[in-house]
Design a protein around this nucleic acid. Structure first.
Lengths: 330, 330
DNA sequence: GTGAAAGCGCTAACAC
DNA sequence: GTGTTAGCGCTTTCAC
């Protein structure tokens, strides 16, 4: 089913069919109608691939995610939302969390796709190679390896962590533990910095024993939380670097017979909406994940169209949503 | 950056470069090394589009989803998992929940992609056109419009609903309400059928007043749940056709001062893992969503490879996971 | 108003 | 072993 089949059936040349498809001038009304009818009848659709090869504009935006976990799927929803009505299509490529050549994956994919299949890409891969394919507009979301010269969307991890810690301080907590994220991710480090700064600003000397690695992993977090809660002079509050760790902390507390928030206050970061459902509903630092996806697409489209982009590094606000997992110390 | 640049720089013809890329015979060790070095140096990657146009095999599988909601993203994870190590890549196309031409979307996309960009596709769109593009292997997941002759993966909605209802009956409940899904979806109808059968088998005549539409929508469900719980002779248990409706029911109960499960038992269907987090943790009919994604990909790969496929309609088991939202009547 | 022909980047016959 | 060439499905000059 190619353009030639349509041309043959309509008794015209392929060039004419192409003109009809692309709504070009220079086709008589009669021919137009006939060709349209044949297209309809045959259910013909132009091959995206052949079109891409010819035109260098494809009206397709790629979004590359390292894996389909809650963060990226949430982001995808915002992106899908922004793409609607933009005239672009969205295709998602997932590396499937593969470990082989973690560094080069996004670059390889980008080279294979750019200039042909996609007009630009959003990168949601923790490790963003600094030297991406030239000539292809790219926007990175929360690029974890530190400041890059790529256009970037992220959220205010530092301030979010400070808000969370200050909230616990305001509730009277003084022994506040931190369940850290992955040390290789810049956003995780910023959360730690925010925690430390808030403590220091309150005149509290951070206690190394109250800082453990959760690594954004349920099992690692569970073990660390357990250690934290069974150690000497246990904390009265825990700030977890993401919601997975926070939920693991709540579970660990429950297992130890500690009630949340009566015996232990817990705050999480990185919440996808579902974390509001946990029991008790989690106080969280609210990252506007969908909005990040939305903004990334909008910025990318501007870049593709050559529009003026006011700022290429956008940091979205984070806020604290207080729910029932925290309470004032008696 | 094309194959010609590589050829020129290496001082060979494009054919030779192509042979190197595709590991064909007939290239001397010296040339091989030289070309490889140039490829490395230039960071060249063959254009997926041009390759697709030429070869009719692309090693790419498309997965078309109507929207990126929890069900489809969960399914995507299973699919991503199955794709790993299969030699195929996965690309996801989302219709973004668009309403325009809901029927033809998957067909249009498929025509544009098949034979060129993807070797086959998994359809996760409620409405599956019966006459999909011939020549392209396709597997439908939970096709909602009724039995189709397409290869299909679904889960046992009928039995799941029976299990849920029987569980409530076993707990001593007699006035069991049903919060139905969307009447246009076959799976929703099967859930209703299962509910009715279980009641009838227990010698209970279904009460029309206890059946309301939740439409898988939080607001519609909330309103229906409210009506159900404030009506005369209110039910002691509610079976909701999906987890969104179930959570809405729990919330509605809470607002009315009814405790779950003390005053009202609630069971949900369609759970994504997060629904276990709600408060109290929801008793649910467990659909193996990830496994559905996994099986769909595996079946599709077999189809693409022309392998023998034992069954083209696979219905996966559903089970009941009892959590704290249900209890025996006193 | 319409069609012939070139060429997008690549691969596979087939010469040399 | 290596290069020349045709052509995948499409769009776009440019003759007619």
């Amino acid at each position: 089913m190619t353009i030639r089949d349509v041309a043959a059936r309509a008794g015209v040349s392929v060039a004419t069919v192409s003109k009809v498809i692309n709504e070009r001038y220079g086709v008589s009304a009669a021919t137009l109608a006939r060709v349209r009818a044949v297209i309809e009848e045959l259910g013909y659709e132009a091959s995206l691939v052949a079109q891409s090869l010819r035109n260098h504009r494809t009206n397709v935006i790629g979004i590359l995610v390292a894996d389909l976990e809650p963060f990226s799927t949430e982001l995808l929803k915002g992106a899908a939302d922004a793409i609607r009505g933009s005239g672009f299509e969205l295709v998602v490529y997932s590396a499937g969390g593969r470990t082989g050549d973690p560094l080069g994956w996004e670059k390889r994919y980008l080279s294979r796709l750019s200039g042909t299949l996609v007009d630009g890409a959003v990168l949601v891969t923790p490790t963003v190679s600094l030297d991406v394919v030239p000539g292809t507009p790219v926007v990175a979301v929360d690029p974890h390896t530190g400041p890059s010269h790529l256009p970037t969307i992220d959220s205010d991890n530092l301030r979010g962590a400070q808000l969370a810690t200050e909230h616990l301080l305001d509730l009277g907590h003084r022994r506040i533990a931190f369940l850290a994220g992955r040390p290789d991710l810049q956003s995780a480090e910023l959360r730690k910095t925010g925690y430390l700064r808030a403590l220091t600003a309150a005149g509290i000397t951070p206690d190394e024993d109250l800082i453990r690695i959760g690594a954004y992993d349920p099992e690692v977090s569970a073990a660390s939380a357990h250690a934290l809660l069974t150690g000497p002079d246990r904390p009265t509050a825990v700030f977890a670097a993401n919601d997975i760790s926070a939920i693991a902390t709540v579970d660990a507390a429950r297992e130890l017979g500690l009630a949340v928030p009566d015996d232990l206050s817990v705050v999480g970061f990185d919440n996808v909406p579902e974390s509001a459902l946990c029991s008790p509903p989690l106080t969280t630092v609210d990252q506007p994940i969908r909005e990040m996806g939305h903004r990334a697409i909008r910025m990318l489209i501007a870049l593709i169209n050559g529009d003026e982009v006011e700022r290429t590094h956008v940091t979205l606000d984070t806020g604290l949503v207080v729910r029932h997992s925290t309470r004032a110390l008696p």
